[in-house]
Amino acid sequence: MAVSPESIQILTAGGLGVVGSAVVYRLARLRRLSFRYAVGWLTLCGIGMFAGITAPILEPLARSLKVSPAVVIALGAVVLLVAICIQLSISISGLQEQNRQLTEHIAHLRLEMEEKISELGK
């Protein structure tokens, strides 16, 4: 029985989704990935895993866009990936500022401590 190219694409997406979910789950269990990011990545993997189920639902949309359902799924995954990247960038920017403030506080506290020790020495 010949398998259509669409089926291969959907099966590949589903397979990658299963592997991705397993990796994300393992990282979350090892606490290398916090809950909020694990949820984001699992959602993305979920799109891949259920590609086969969602494909028929996406058929009308895909037809109106003159693309295959697999392309619609891939497009959705790209949008979600971009959203996760933007969210990560926001998080990193916030962490950079927090890191900077912490570094400044340590330096000020260290200087105050040195001055107090110097005063006590006198």
């Binding site: 900077r100 570094t103 200087l111």
Partner: peptide, 8 residues
């Protein structure tokens, strides 16, 4: 001297 523990 204000000593930053890491390079900013």
């Amino acid at each position: 001297v204000l000593e930053l523990p890491i390079n900013l």
